[in-house]
Design a protein around this nucleic acid. Sequence first.
DNA 1: GATCAGGGTGTACAGGTTGCTCAGCTATTT
DNA 2: AAATAGCTGAGCAACCTGTACACCCTGATC
Lengths: 155, 155
Amino acid sequence: MIDELDARLIALLADEPRIGVLECSRRLSVARGTVQARLDRLQQRGVIRGFGPEVDPAALGYQVTAFVTLEIRQAGGHDSVAARLAAIPEVIEVHTITGGGDMLCRIVGRGNQDLQRVIDLIVDVEGVHRTSTVIALATPVHQRTLPLVHAAVRQ
Amino acid sequence: MIDELDARLIALLADEPRIGVLECSRRLSVARGTVQARLDRLQQRGVIRGFGPEVDPAALGYQVTAFVTLEIRQAGGHDSVAARLAAIPEVIEVHTITGGGDMLCRIVGRGNQDLQRVIDLIVDVEGVHRTSTVIALATPVHQRTLPLVHAAVRQ
DNA sequence: GATCAGGGTGTACAGGTTGCTCAGCTATTT
DNA sequence: AAATAGCTGAGCAACCTGTACACCCTGATC
């Protein structure tokens, strides 16, 4: 799925994103064209989605993260609910899930009180029946993919 | 916390990450130095964490995402459990949480069967008492921060 | 009213980087 | 044996970056 050079390239870019193709080729001891071609292929295959800026919600004032499990009215379907959830900026991610609930959202708020406001917005969404929220107190492991990249090498 | 130019800059970079400072300044109709200074400040304040490559686990073969809620033995504390979880590449994110469970992890696997292997790894972690897993069937809203950026303008 | 700091503008320059192309080389596949 | 895919090193023009400087405006402070 990915070879070792790809993995080293991704790791290098993850570590120092602003170094550019030429510098990468020097660090990896390969030709510049190779790095360029690898990057093109990785992006084309969708392994690398892009190089967008990673924004930290906390630095924007949204200091609380929570996960909300939704039960929805089956009539109407998930899609219309998802669309309405997507209209709320503080809703950062939405999944449909197996198990007791129907959907799982990640949301943020400027504080616990503000979180209540966001939850109320969600509860008011048409089709949402019940919600249950857990607040993230700390995040010992922040979202990461590098270990996966290394685990996926050679296959 | 952020002004409108910052927001437009972030949105622009999110849309076309590889355009460079000069092109940004043209698109936003400001001087190059301004863009450069804004970017520096945004990164320094931690609003922009970086420009690392966004890797898609699915493209690496990890096509299933799940959320695992852990109950842990209180003795020993969260930290040692978190450290052991961090050693598992398929564990992509770990939070400590309020409510019934003690921790919430996001994990990935190459398929439902592979997910079982990952869950078994988690169950085997010393200090983990019980787990309960929900599988993400679909993801109508992928992780995003742009709406937040716009919502945070002018404050 | 005067002074000041912070942020924006334009300009300038050298040096580095990018995008692209080419020919040659090596493995692996057919 | 021939073909395909990928890597290498080289070359070139166009462009971008980092950095510095002088100047201007604005709101805040004295």
